[in-house]
Structure formats: structure tokens, C-alpha cells
């Protein structure tokens, strides 16, 4: 399975990753303060439907509904003991959706791992070894449910991101692992909340010698600001680059959050991420199956990649 993924990544064609999960679940009735990952057990049918929607829209990769399912995060809802059940169910639901969509041979399942929300020592109370164990537990459950790869996403701390990546590799050294940080634009270029630049992060990855299959960025900004991030990565690494921006910026309309980019605007901006060197492109907050459908349409026209295009 992972061989199929690696050869797909080695090709000239970009892979399309799915769009937002959280905002889709809100539309399906997820309440305020409710744990979204608990729906893997409570409402498996709804999670499967969201995945199917993205697969039908043309996503090559779907990410499991396990972003906040590290034991540390689940503990905030008092359900740490459900870590195995929730993560395993998340992986199985994505696999079932892929089967129902008739895409067993073409689509990939990425197990999503998000930040714990705690700061590492010495800034905060979390120890590296503790976080390693937590992420390992989450990865083991995702792997037992059948994911093809793990994507560590929306990370603000590069140290925490690499602890998660290292923990995933400790579960299975052959498991493909991707790691995304979230950057803000600053006058000095993109930086994480901790001050890390994309170039800094590449150096950290190289120093720690973690065998990543891709590095990238998601959330935080729309595609336009994300372009700088992809360019910075491309200048420093030959690893495949992952990029999934938000659908522009959030606005409140009648107490509902609306992101300001239409599917077509989003796809037009996101296509430029491919030119800048990203090979896995999708959507984050505010994106819907329609956004992904438009993105796929643009990117299919670009396959195989242009000769001498943005790709190193």
C-alpha cells in the first residue's frame, strides 16, 4: 500500500487532498464544545458521508477524523481511555468510505494527528518523552485501523511536530509520515507562533534525521500567503511538499462563520501552490467538497506536470 503511495508521489501529477472536516461536522449538527472525534463512534455514518463527499469531488487523499484524538487532547474531554477506539474507528471509517466510493486502488488514507495544545518543557509542562508516548499510542491505533500514512498537521511547535513524527516512525519505520506546520505571514517572511521559518524547520528535520516522506503547511492563511511558505520550503528541500490553505479568511454572517473564497477563487489561488512546488494540495478550514472539485479540475489539467515546471 505504501509503495503505491510513494510511486504516486514520485510521479509528475499532483495529488489532491480533501477539505475541511470540522466545518462539515458543524453543518451536520456538531454542537459547541462537543468532541468532534467522538463522532467516529457516535455517528460513524456522518463521518463516512463527509469522506465520501470528498472522494466523489476528486480527492486522492482523505484525512481521518482524528485531529484532536491524541490521548492528551481527549483527556480534556475526559475520554482519554477511548483513544484506541476513536482512532481505530476513524481509520476504519475512512477505509470504508474509500471502498464505498470504489476507490480502493486509487485513493489513500492519511491518519491525521494534531497538536496537544500544551507547551513543551521548558516553556510549558509537557515533557518530550510523555508526548512521544501519547503520539505513539495514537499512531498505533490509526495503523491498526488501516491508514496508508500519517500526517502530523497544524503544528505550531516544530519540536512537538517532530516528536509526533518520530513517534509515528517508532510504531513502524516504513510508515510514510508527513509533517505540516502552520505559519503566519510576518515582515520577515512566514513564521510559526514559535518563530520558526520553513528553512529553520528543514534544518531541524535534517538534524534529527527523521525519514519524512513530505513536509508542508496547512491552516493559518489562505493560499496567497501560503505561496511564500511553499517557495521557502522548495528552496531548501527536495522532499515532496504538502499545502492545504484555508478558503481565504473567516467572516461572521448571521452568527455563522463564512470563509470568503468561492470554490473557484480558492482553486485559482491554490493552483499556484503547485507551480511553486507543492505536490500534495488540498483545503483546510472553510473548504467544502465544491472547493476540492474545483481544485481537482484545475490540477487535472496540469497533469502530468509541466516540463521544467516548479518541481525540482
Amino acid at each position: 500500500m505504501s509503495n503505491r503511495l510513494l510511486s504516486a508521489l514520485g510521479g509528475d501529477s499532483p495529488l489532491v487532498l480533501d477539505g475541511a472536516m470540522g466545518t462539515m461536522l458543524q453543518q451536520l449538527g456538531l454542537g459547541l464544545g462537543e468532541c468532534p472525534e467522538l463522532w467516529n463512534i457516535k455517528h460513524p455514518d456522518r463521518i463516512r458521508e463527509v469522506h465520501k463527499g470528498y472522494l466523489k469531488a476528486g480527492a486522492d487523499i482523505i484525512v481521518t477524523n482524528t485531529f484532536g484524538a491524541s490521548p492528551k487532547k481527549l483527556a480534556m474531554f475526559g475520554i482519554e481511555e477511548k483513544t484506541e477506539e476513536i482512532n481505530r474507528a476513524g481509520a476504519i471509517l475512512a477505509c470504508e468510505a474509500r471502498n464505498l466510493a470504489g476507490k480502493d486502488k486509487t485513493a489513500f488514507i492519511f491518519g491525521g494527528i494534531g497538536p496537544t495544545g500544551e507547551l513543551l518543557e521548558p516553556l510549558g509542562a509537557a515533557s518530550a518523552s510523555d508526548l512521544h508516548q501519547h503520539f505513539k499510542r495514537q499512531t498505533e491505533a490509526l495503523v491498526s485501523g488501516g491508514v496508508d500514512a500519517v500526517i502530523v498537521e497544524t503544528m505550531l511547535s516544530p519540536e512537538e511536530a517532530l516528536i509526533a513524527a518520530g513517534a509515528a516512525k517508532a510504531v513502524d519505520a516504513k510508515l510514510p509520515v508527513f509533517v505540516n506546520l502552520t505559519f503566519d505571514p510576518t515582515p520577515h517572511g512566514p513564521r510559526t507562533m514559535m518563530g520558526t521559518s520553513p528553512a529553520d524547520f528543514v534544518v531541524m528535520i535534517e538534524n534529527q534525521k527523521i525519514d519524512l516522506q513530505g513536509v508542508g503547511t496547512n491552516c493559518g492563511t489562505g493560499a496567497r500567503d501560503m505561496l511564500r511558505v511553499v517557495e521557502s520550503y522548495r528552496a531548501k528541500t527536495k522532499l515532496p511538499i504538502v499545502a492545504y490553505p484555508n478558503a481565504g479568511f473567516p467572516k461572521m454572517v448571521n452568527e455563522q462563520t463564512v470563509y470568503d473564497q468561492t470554490p473557484d477563487e480558492f482553486a485559482t489561488e491554490a493552483e499556484k501552490l503547485f507551480d511553486a512546488g507543492a505536490s500534495i494540495i488540498g483545503g483546510c478550514c472553510g473548504t467544502t467538497p465544491e472547493h476540492i472539485r474545483h481544485l481537482k479540475k484545475k490540477l487535472v489539467q496540469r497533469s502530468p506536470g509541466p516540463i521544467g515546471g516548479g518541481h525540482v
Binding site: L119, L123, T186, P187, H188, R191, M193, M194, G195
Partner: peptide, 12 residues
């Protein structure tokens, strides 16, 4: 504010 330093520096 000028984004010359970030969260870690402020916390220390």
C-alpha cells in the same frame, strides 16, 4: 508586536 521575537522569548 513587530514580530522580531515570538512566544518562547515572551514566555521566558
Amino acid at each position: 508586536q513587530a514580530k522580531e521575537i515570538f512566544i518562547p522569548e515572551v514566555l521566558f
